[in-house]
């Protein structure tokens, strides 16, 4: 998770507007779902891989690990379909892979916090977005704590053998919960000390829409749509 977050923070398209990136990614998903898989899905996949690896300069290995997990689920789900209708299975597979490439693009070029802020701007209640942002922050803290606890357990041979590993994992999770509550309480003190009274407002960096960029996105999507309609 932290690798995914890191690349989202430092990739070449970090400062491109969320609007451009999300219209590119979600627009492509719509095309993939609306038009026939060949040639649309193939085209979309090529465009999104190009955008991710060449445009945003996401490292190839990281991209492969990012796309591997959803493809694993896809493989597991597609096998039964393939027994019934290989053609249908192929279509589903192509659509899924193309859609996944769109979402991986968004996940690897845009930090989760940018996405939440974007949702807030289009009407997500601030209570929900505040909680989402806090959870996001706490995830990293708890991942750190859990990994430190796991190292401490391993250092005292708590991870040797499946039975002991399971036992250690249980202890770890049981310990994480009270810690979570204690930390939540201390965090509240910290927020109160800084004048918090119910709303989490911070100065967010804004990345304005570049009109040439937005036009380019729309042109590419229109092109894919035309080829998709004509080619099928």
């Amino acid at each position: 998770m932290s690798h995914l977050d890191s690349v989202a923070q430092v990739n070449q398209w970090r400062t491109k507007s969320l609007i451009e990136k999300s219209i590119l990614a979600l627009g492509m998903v719509v095309l993939v779902l609306a038009l026939s898989p060949f040639p649309t899905a193939v085209m979309v996949f090529i465009v999104m891989v190009t955008a991710t690896l060449w445009g945003a300069k996401v490292p190839v290995r990281l991209w492969l690990t990012g796309i591997a997990a959803p493809l694993g689920f896809l493989a597991a789900g597609i096998v039964p379909v393939a027994f019934d209708s290989p053609a249908l299975a192929l279509g589903i597979a192509m659509r899924s892979i193309a859609s996944v490439s769109c979402l991986v693009f968004l996940a690897m070029t845009t930090p989760a916090t940018d996405v939440v802020r974007g949702l807030r701007r289009i009407g997500l209640p601030s209570e929900v977005s505040d909680i989402a942002l806090l959870v996001y922050r706490l995830l990293f803290l708890f991942a750190d704590t859990a990994s430190a606890m796991n190292s401490a357990q391993a250092a005292r041979l708590g991870t040797v053998g499946a039975r002991r590993r399971l036992n250690s994992l249980g202890l770890l999770l049981a310990n994480l919960l009270p810690r979570a509550f204690a930390r939540a309480h201390r965090m509240e003190v910290g927020l109160m000390a800084r004048g918090w009274h119910g709303e989490m407002r911070v100065l967010s960096p804004s990345y304005p829409v570049s009109w040439p960029g937005l036009v380019a996105v729309l042109v590419v999507e229109f092109g894919v749509a035309v080829i998709g309609v004509v080619g099928s």
């Binding site: 930090p111 942002l133 922050r137 803290l141 930390r183 965090m187 927020l191 989490m200 911070v202 967010s204």
Partner: peptide
């Protein structure tokens, strides 16, 4: 870590002044 909660440094520091 008990008082940093925003995504970036500048955002976090802006929290108090905005309050």
């Amino acid at each position: 870590d008990d008082q940093l909660f925003a995504a970036t440094v500048a955002e976090d520091v802006s929290f108090g002044p905005l309050n």
